[in-house]
Amino acid sequence: MLLEVALPLALAIIMFSLGFGLTFADFGRVFSLPRAVITGILMQVIALPVVAFLLVSLSDLPPGLALGVMILAFCPGGVTSSMLTKLAGGTVALSITLTAVISLLSVLTVPVLVGWSTDHFLGSAAPELNVTAIGMNMFVITAVPVVIGVLLRFVAPGFADRYESKVSLVALVLFVIIVAAALTANWTMFISNVGTLAPILMGLNAVLLVLGVAVARLVGLSGADGLCISVEMAVQNATLGIAVAGMVAAAAGIPEYAVPSAVYGITMFVVTLPGVVVLRLIFGKT
């Protein structure tokens, strides 16, 4: 019971930290940088799940873990993506905008896509899902905290400037706790499948990093915009993935569907950190 309350609350705080670092101008970039923003949205909402589906289809993961990978793939970028974009030499403003816009869009996209994936991978064993209820839950624990954070920064910018770093630190600590809890709750399954699951997730991460830059170049975006889109695709909101997995299971505790998100919460940094350094050396001045 404590976990059922603590997990959504922790996610809400993490999403509030995202909104706390946003301004209305960040959403306005949808119109000032339309090609970059539209490319980033399409790559994350469409291309990322397609790549994940292909990798999962070629693997021998158990159905529950395969569903978990897809749940992760439907989630928006993580709250650390802007920091990694800066490290990569990417366009930080674009990163902030993409994270914000896709996080709000996910309230609509994630429930529908999760409903399809659950039926596809679990078949007759699939739990009965209320897609509308999942969407409403996501709205309450993701969209509402983001909006509150944005509004608070708007009405009290000085307060936001003073406390933004502290709120971000709290969000990071909560993220680590949630990942650890998800792995601990499913430790036996994690140990049994980590040899297969980790390479798939790391491969997904690497493919997304390269694909983001390649497509950005193909549509004529700058190297900095491409690096941003690359990072946004590779750094997913693993906390949301764990929370959505819990909504699918509709049971006490953290289900097996959450294991891929928890593992990715670790492996994405293992791959992304050296990956963005390499990509910056190759594409940073183009």
Rank of each mutant, 00 (worst) to 15 (best):
D119A: 15
H120C: 09
F121V: 08
F121W: 12
L122F: 10
S124M: 10
A125P: 01
A125G: 07
A126K: 09
P127D: 02
E128A: 13
E128S: 12
N130Y: 00
V131W: 03
I134L: 09
I134W: 03
M136V: 10
N137S: 14
N137L: 07
M138G: 05
F139A: 13
V140E: 00
V140S: 00
V140D: 00
V140H: 00
I141V: 14
I141H: 05
T142I: 10
T142R: 00
A143G: 03
A143L: 04
A143N: 03
V146P: 02
I148C: 09
I148T: 04
G149V: 02
G149S: 06
V150R: 01
V150W: 00
L152K: 02
G158T: 08
A160L: 05
D161C: 01
E164P: 10
E164C: 11
E164F: 11
S165P: 06
K166A: 13
V167H: 11
V167E: 13
L169Q: 13
L169W: 11
V170P: 10
A171G: 14
A171Q: 11
A171K: 06
F175Y: 11
F175T: 13
V176A: 14
I178F: 14
I178W: 11
V179Q: 01
A180N: 04
A180F: 12
A182C: 11
A185V: 09
A185T: 10
N186L: 09
N186G: 03
W187N: 06
M189L: 14
I191D: 11
I191E: 14
